[in-house]
Design a protein around this nucleic acid. Structure first.
Lengths: 143, 143
DNA sequence: AATCCGATGAAAGTGATTTTCATTGGCATA
DNA sequence: TATGCCAATGAAAATCACTTTCATCGGATT
């Protein structure tokens, strides 16, 4: 899993004529061994703890690269920060976002996807992607 | 419809001990006779055309008030701008967002809502609100 | 018409993200 | 291995979409 994504990123870098650097390796490692749904700031702080020589801008730029390479996806959950989640090939899932503790769970539902396709089809709309988020209280925060 | 919302806002103003002002009347009129899903900037520019004396900050503040009063709802569609849509009582709908022309259509689907409730229930999650957006090409942009 | 206090507009401030720019450092080539 | 090219980096400045400040204005209650 981790290895596969490193390979994907290495290939992406090579294909674009970009360079392999220490910073990119460190950031990729840290990203892959993190929580899904990490914000840029969270990742930056995590990195700073071990590597004081990594700049803010580099983290931003590198995460954007991950997204372009297809190993990460940008997400907004309305807290004003962009989060990046891990992307597995072909996989898609939706989110349950706890408005109290901020925890994010994932779910998949084939029937909902099916209904979405029907709705789009009935209007001649071609779906490229979708987002479905349920906001509320997670089981722990309900007490 | 338009009258009903003006009444709701007037009542809201009164109840809070706020004031009725020329600017608020103008902004409300303009909002009510606009497209659903207008961004703040779009509304501001529209207003400026007729009323050069309305400030940016006032438009922001007033739209927030509309949201508090329950006649508008803040929405984010990932283009970096907050949009306000009209709110009818008790109504909820989801969106089809065209990634080429930016047009936003609405839809409702009771079965999807039902499935969402089941998913949440199975995890002990209490839904407060949700968002479902389908991004892609609208019928016109598909050519 | 006087007074109170919310409302307004211009400008300054915020916070997240992006860009600039001088410098560094991969890496292909000589 | 040395050289040169140009991408990558980090710090700081800039940008973007808002939000707040503050001096002044103006509803509305007395």
């Amino acid at each position: 899993m981790k290895r596969a994504k490193k390979k994907i990123f290495a290939d992406f870098i090579a294909q674009r004529g970009l360079k392999s650097t220490k910073q990119r390796d460190i950031i990729l490692d840290s990203f892959l061994s993190s929580d899904r749904h990490l914000s840029i700031e969270e990742l930056y702080l995590k990195l700073r703890a071990k590597h004081s020589n990594i700049g803010y801008a580099t983290v931003y730029r590198t995460l954007k690269l991950f997204a372009e390479a297809g190993i990460a996806r940008e997400m907004q959950f309305g807290d004003g920060q962009t989060r990046y989640e891990h992307v597995g090939e072909g996989e898609h899932h939706d989110h349950l976002v706890c408005t109290r503790c901020g925890n994010i769970e994932e779910f998949e539902n084939e029937t909902i996807e099916q209904l979405q396709s029907e709705i789009a089809a009935s209007r001649g709309f071609l779906i490229e992607r979708h987002r479905l988020e349920l906001y509320g209280l997670c089981v722990n925060c309900r007490k």
